[in-house]
Amino acid sequence: MTERVLEASERTRAAKTRQRISVRPQSAKSKLAGSFHTPLWHRVAERLIAILALAAVLAIALIFVFIAREAVPMLWEAEFAEEVQIRDLFFAKEWKGYDEPVFIWQPVGEPAKFNVVPLFIGSLKVTLLAMLMSVPLGVGCAMFIALYAPRAVREVVKPVIELLAGIPSVVLGFFALMVLASWAQATFGFHFRLNAFVAAIGLALTIVPVIFTISEDAIQAVPSTLTEAALALGARKYQVALRVVLPAAIPGIAAGVVLGFGRAIGETMIVLMASGNAAIMELFDFSTSVRTVTATIAAELGEVAQGDPHWRVLFLLGVMLFGVTFVLNILGDLFIQRLQKRLTAS
């Protein structure tokens, strides 16, 4: 069984780091190691390797510390308190000129209004929409490839999807902005040319490969004993697919969905270019423009002075985004572990 899963993982050693379902092989450590005299420089090199191996851990820690460092002073700085009240970052307020409490992101003006809620609504909206498109596409595609496609088709399609994964997001953003937006407006008559729908198509293109690769792995990794048993009992192929293979592969698919979600909510260039960037408080109408957390950071950070309240709020957005994706990543890992356990146990 182990080999089978490993083989599945070998097939996808592609670029995407986490798209990998593997079981640790036997330890490389041999009893013989270390029983002979080792020259000094070997030991130095080995020590160096062990230290460098901590770089990833260090990087994660530094990322968190150094973006938090730019945000946290908002808690005590007088300059910040003069301009912004922290509760207004999260709660609605009845600003002058409005007749009810509102959530507003208008960071330039007197007074500046920094409410992060519309931005998170925007991120969530465009991400959910992208998921609605990419999950059926990715999983459907994976099922087709794993269950129905002839070998020749499979050999072609997998590299093609890897190719899709290799397209830089600025190119997808460009495509959404220049080509898809005009097409969508002509076809559906959208009021806004750049809107959540157009941006979501662009996003879907980036996450389809993620969902496809992980789902396909998971489906391939379902033991043939299971499917053969079902077939032997007289089940039809579609019954096997829907009632045996799919349920067995669910944790893998879930991992793909979670990781795809994390990717989509953190994607910047596509939404920056194609979403219209209007901070509207509206979750369900996908024909309106949206302003996401990521696009806001990208568009505004270059223009504020270090230490300005606006600067601090943008770094706070970064910290929050980091937190969200961190949780999603851990969740995705848990699903993958569960899948491995389930498959190795059977």
């Binding site: 990833a56 973006i67 990781l259 909510i265 953190g266 910047t268 950071i297 990543n329």
Partner: peptide, 16 residues
């Protein structure tokens, strides 16, 4: 850490 690093949004790297 490696898995998480792979999932950090690119804009957050910009902030970093």
């Amino acid at each position: 850490a490696v898995n998480n690093l792979a999932g950090v949004p690119s804009i957050v790297f910009g902030l970093f």
